[in-house]
Design a binder for these strands. Sequence first.
DNA 1: CATGAATGAGCCTTCATTCAT
DNA 2: TATGAATGAAGGCTCATTCAT
Lengths: 214, 214, 214, 214
Amino acid sequence: MVYNGTNRKRLAENTRQKIYDSAMHLFSTKSFNKVSVDSIVEMAGVSKGSFYVHFPSKSALVNALISDQVQSADTDYTLFLESFSDDAPAEDLLLALIGKIADVVVDKIGYDKMKTVYKAQIADDVDTQTVTNYNRAIYKLFSDILERGIKRGELNSSLPLELLTRHLMMAIRGITYEWCIRSPEFNYKEEALQYFKLLIEGLRNPSLSSNRQM
Amino acid sequence: MVYNGTNRKRLAENTRQKIYDSAMHLFSTKSFNKVSVDSIVEMAGVSKGSFYVHFPSKSALVNALISDQVQSADTDYTLFLESFSDDAPAEDLLLALIGKIADVVVDKIGYDKMKTVYKAQIADDVDTQTVTNYNRAIYKLFSDILERGIKRGELNSSLPLELLTRHLMMAIRGITYEWCIRSPEFNYKEEALQYFKLLIEGLRNPSLSSNRQM
Amino acid sequence: MVYNGTNRKRLAENTRQKIYDSAMHLFSTKSFNKVSVDSIVEMAGVSKGSFYVHFPSKSALVNALISDQVQSADTDYTLFLESFSDDAPAEDLLLALIGKIADVVVDKIGYDKMKTVYKAQIADDVDTQTVTNYNRAIYKLFSDILERGIKRGELNSSLPLELLTRHLMMAIRGITYEWCIRSPEFNYKEEALQYFKLLIEGLRNPSLSSNRQM
Amino acid sequence: MVYNGTNRKRLAENTRQKIYDSAMHLFSTKSFNKVSVDSIVEMAGVSKGSFYVHFPSKSALVNALISDQVQSADTDYTLFLESFSDDAPAEDLLLALIGKIADVVVDKIGYDKMKTVYKAQIADDVDTQTVTNYNRAIYKLFSDILERGIKRGELNSSLPLELLTRHLMMAIRGITYEWCIRSPEFNYKEEALQYFKLLIEGLRNPSLSSNRQM
DNA sequence: CATGAATGAGCCTTCATTCAT
DNA sequence: TATGAATGAAGGCTCATTCAT
């Protein structure tokens, strides 16, 4: 009130950013437990105390990191799909989206960071709600494509839309996990596209067999 | 002190077994990093030194554990399939196998142990070659079913048999990973069966579209 | 910016009071080391910097807190005794005062705050001169009662008045310490009254033995 | 079994002792929170890991320290009293015991260590059961003296024996606390003896007034 | 083979205080 | 006066592995 805190705020934001960036860098290489707060602040060139001024805990920082990453990716996907015409066949959209996801995961996020997330997710190191939350934008994207495809008769399935959506996301996570444990011999994009073609076939031709009992 | 080789061997084997069993028990509840060598030897009632007599490292022990578990599971699957007639439709066999896998994973191995494996796999805590190895019996099982199905025209795919097999295994791993991060709200068997019906559809009806470009 | 000394003073006093009150509240629950400056300013809704504007250190604040508490208690005791007639027997006055002290300690000050004081006192966390100072009003109160009692022959002792006074205060502190480490199974008032009856007996009947050597 | 572990055990005991002694030394000077595990192991010349081989925690070590100290003191008191004839007057025994306690507390245990205990006790830093436990040998000693004194008519009191015993111990603790916060101007032995003479008077002459209400 | 003491690096978090604005 | 970012030392505890006996 008495003074203009803009400079102070800038300074603070700068410090926070340095910590954030250093962490991002380190987590791109090593997993949650292998990256110490010490190493983060050292790289950031700030004091350890500063870390806890800006982030309540190491977990919280990683949360923020992952959350931002997820949002950024989802924004990418959304913008990407907006460039397509609404009449585009569902199948095309699905494959295009998968391709885009592959690009983002492989090139933008990268192997190590992705692995860190998948590890953290299963290790309960941090709260990865943001990643698995069914309300993530990406679920909506898949859901919309599927819905339109079904409405237009391009796709067919006796299963509820919501279940199909979850299945597709599960497929992506499965591919990503496989990539994480098989890299570098595993070509993410190629495998993802082939795999999804298979799935799309299944969606397109709901033979009577779906009523059979196992 | 008279040396009796036989007794000694028996003793050694006994010690090793106690360690092994205790570890198995502990890893069924907690993850690799949460189970300490101390806790293992305490439960086994042997000394810490003994541990390193029988296992070169904690990782090595977990290796053995996982390897055995994999072999045991694969044996289960193999025996299970042998009870089916060779003429059984590929689709039926696939679904039956998936159901069996679900049963083994959920009931025999169990959530915590499975999670330990999946975590260890992605965390590079241990060498999980045995799990991901393409020579695992289970790959052969899937491959055989697919091969027969294709030969008999029940299934169709322009994709190489080996790729399809890998895809199915990747699907299973994806489901399992999803289970690991979503339990208990995720019903493994149900989701697995529904998901595989989708995949089988895709395998059965290779529409022309599979030649389209994305 | 027009400088208005009055407003500024009011503001300052207000800020100081908020810090003071919050601290009082927190120290009523947790001990010196468990209450952080952070928690105080957070509860007070002021900045950390403000804290150090009004109090040179955490210790100084606690000093003020304790000092005020002591003064307040002593005022209570003084007023309480003023309501008694001067001719009241010394024994009655002593027991009445002890009862009053028990009430104030237990009900007005309360267990946690009292414990904080006793802890701080022995831990040298803060300067607790005000509590132990022989010039505290309460010493004078006890001294007066004793003096009158001795003068009127109700009490007898070869020991100097000043020593007796110190002994009584030491007794109270002893009871309070015992209460601090035995609560809640220790009934302060009951034990205090019984204990003082014993002491008063000793004061009343100075047998020859007081000259004996141990 | 195979080997004679005597040497090993000796070595271990030696290490434990070094830690124990260093801790004893440090706690004689500084309080629980001011003595770090680091400082203990440094003085002991052993590794930090060793500390936790021999003691589960810092608290546990202090527990052991205090417990030993208490036992040692109580043994001193017991042996001391055994040197007295059973016919010795209760009053003499009580004063003799107080004098002995004063000697042990002041000369054997010492101011700083005593303070550490009293601080730890009220700060809940460690479990000081052993100190306050009503089953401590010292309670029995006081109880026996009182009982005999009452039986022989030397002492008189309408209060239960157990309560009187607790009162005496509370008195000692009160004196000790006062000493802790007033040293060095407070002469423990002198004050203790004078104070107990007062108490003993109260015990000897239970005037009718003990039935009065306050 | 069995034992278990010893190691020592490593980690997250807390906190009172300072000071530029 | 008020602010709040920055500091950096301190501290308890875990754990896989080694090695002399």
